[in-house]
Nucleic acid binder design. Structure first.
Lengths: 243, 243
DNA sequence: CGACACTTTGAAGACGATCAACGCCGGTGG
DNA sequence: CCACCGGCGTTGATCGTCTTCAAAGTGTCG
């Protein structure tokens, strides 16, 4: 088995599957390299493949008919592409998938995914759980877009970044460009840039790609229900899957 | 079997299940009445039940930590509540469920839902498909909130209403209050009201609860664009003209 | 050094939120 | 029968926020 597959075996998608079965399942996957800027698939293509990111970062970019572009997700290693479209039945990718940096993916056929989720009920339920979490996050996102200010969106984003990548909030580097982040947050680059200036007054300093958040208490102003230290265990689960 | 269950058997959730098995499954359900304004469950409650709406309309209302309220969904008969939370594993409802009008629901236990989706792979996959569609819609919603103007949001909403309820766009009545619609669209009632005035210039007339959409050129796009979950949303195209 | 992508800053304008006042209607109670 | 009230919706004036357009600054890499 390719070394790239090793870390894949850890994914929660495969929880409850024996090592032997995992090996058997993963043999159906082919590694697929995607260099920076390259498009893995395009919005509207038939959704024939399911991908797990082994290394690198992928961007899901949607172009609306009226010319707007919005980055739906920025996915890191261990996250997956295509499962929604495949399971939805309508079978067309809803967004372009583009490599933000040189990346390695494991490619499976759509029929493989459908087959194994039938053959291995545990995997089917894991998939169900994964997708249900995505519903949750997507609804949260819509809520944020509708009710939060740019400052709140940025603060919330930085916080999630720390959780997802295990960064120390007091000092870390942005893992991708400001242009990409602005697109992810659905705001203009100019607005994002100005917002970062405003946040300095609130203990959040960003110089170039370096971020340091000195006053964690301040962050609470920008926190949403799922990011906060709520009683809810969903918090942590959800945060672990944030892009 | 209660008469209320009859129409439930038609749901796509039960596609591929024999009539005999359907009957067996549905016997686990209890009818539950919920009168106008009454809360079925609250945001944060343990997600112990799955509901299918037999008659009436339910509103999913989320309160954000900073005091904003947003209506996530307005659900009609045949639609379901709670499946996401149950399947997500973390098991707390993310929003309040409130009856918009006197409603009848079929209640199942959360464990029932998990059990049957394991026992009946077809049902498990139907559920997966249902939830995957919700991801799509929720992402679309977030995109709309981020990129569309109030006019576009309202136009898009009216289109969907026609598809969902089978209304003739040239003449129909709003099925619920403007206050509720505004909340669903994440805008203030005042903004919604003003937006309706603006739309008159674009062939969309709303007087009281009566709506008539005259612009046939836009109408053609509406019909095909709405019914599908398809990402290539003709809605957007039709709404380009709206500033 | 110069080309180019990325980012910052400024000034003007569009848009939606807020606050406030008013009109409309159905129900209730004197 | 009328007066009052509360829920609902409309309209106006004002304000803050985000976008747009434009220009200039920063960095990297050939």
């Amino acid at each position: 088995m390719p070394a790239a597959l090793e870390n894949i075996r850890m994914l929660s998608l495969f929880d409850g599957i024996s090592d032997h079965d995992k090996d058997r399942l993963l043999q159906a996957g082919h590694t697929h390299k995607c260099s920076r800027g390259q498009m893995l698939y395009a919005q509207g293509d038939a959704a024939n493949h399911f991908y797990i990111i082994s290394r690198g970062t992928m961007q899901l970019l949607r172009t609306t008919p009226d010319g707007h572009e919005k980055t739906l997700h920025i996915l890191k290693s261990g996250q997956t592409l295509g499962e929604n479209e495949i399971m939805e039945g309508c079978s067309r990718y809803v967004a372009n998938a583009i490599a933000v940096e040189d990346s390695v993916l494991i490619e499976f056929s759509a029929t493989w995914l459908k087959e194994v989720s039938r053959q291995y009920p545990a995997l089917g339920l894991n998939l169900l759980s994964l997708i249900a979490q995505q519903v949750h996050l997507a609804e949260l996102e819509a809520e944020h877009q509708a009710t939060m200010s740019a400052s709140q969106l940025v603060g919330c984003f930085l916080q999630r970044l720390c959780v997802l990548y295990g960064f120390n909030p007091e000092s870390f580097e942005l893992p991708y460009s400001k242009t990409l982040i602005a697109s992810r947050l659905g705001m203009k680059l100019e607005t994002f840039s100005r917002t970062l200036s405003k946040l300095k007054k609130h203990g959040i300093h960003v110089e170039g790609t370096h971020v340091s958040i000195h006053d964690l208490a301040q962050l609470e102003h920008y926190v949403c229900g799922f990011c906060s230290i709520s009683d809810d265990c969903a918090t942590h689960r959800a945060m672990e899957n944030l892009e």
